[in-house]
């Protein structure tokens, strides 16, 4: 590898092919890209020279809004990154006073299910309405890496999913998943 072309890497991660679902960003903070201007790229869609020629720089992409050409302001980059040491999917099994009991299934590593009692206070106030028997939540313990230093953190977030309708359940549950993809 070579370090010399690092500024080029930014532009190489621009999505040029509308059918490419890769976010293709070496820098996960800057993915807001649009392909309308990126014409004339080669079939594989990795023609960096063409991109630079179009934009004149490696900075953010432009958008064609009707007759207007817009350069949206760049998003402030994420400066904090959470590194999980362990993640669990939890399921509330009972509530009692200021705590609730839950089963915890590790999302990574050995799938040994554990049981835990968690203080309701550990849950963000506006998430507490989700605490009921059967509710699913995700619990991560890890480090928050910040410019000012590393901080140990625990994050609990309850699942927010629209409920499947009984009709959906009837028609989709038990159906062979791969049958969707039969020709």
């Amino acid at each position: 590898m070579s370090i010399e072309g690092q500024s080029q890497v930014d532009s190489e991660n621009v999505v040029k092919d509308p059918d490419v679902t890769s976010s293709h960003a070496e820098d996960v903070d800057r993915r807001f890209q649009k392909d309308t201007l990126l014409t004339g790229t080669n079939a594989a869609g990795y023609d960096v020279t063409e991109l630079r020629k179009q934009k004149g720089s490696t900075e953010g992409a432009q958008l064609q809004l009707g007759e207007l050409l817009l350069s949206p302001p760049k998003m402030p980059p994420f400066k904090e990154y959470f590194k999980a040491i362990q993640k669990w999917e939890g399921k509330v099994i009972s509530l009692s006073g200021d705590t609730f009991k839950a089963t915890l299934s590790p999302l990574v590593g050995d799938k040994i299910v554990q049981e835990a009692e968690i203080y309701i206070e550990d849950v963000t106030p506006d998430e507490r309405s989700f605490i009921e028997t059967g509710a699913v939540f995700y619990w991560s313990i890890g480090y928050l890496e910040r410019p000012s230093g590393r901080r140990r953190e625990s994050v609990i977030r309850f699942r927010r999913l629209p409920t499947w309708t009984s009709n959906e359940v009837k028609t989709k549950k038990g159906r062979d998943f791969t049958s969707y993809f039969d020709e």
Partner: peptide
């Protein structure tokens, strides 16, 4: 923890916070 970018042909949501991967999927 979440970045949302949507144009007419493309919907993209992303996070760099490992604790929110499942929340991203749920969204």
């Amino acid at each position: 923890w979440l970045e949302v970018n949507i144009v007419r042909e493309r919907f993209q949501i992303s996070t760099v916070q490992e604790s929110y991967y499942e929340a991203l999927r749920d969204i």
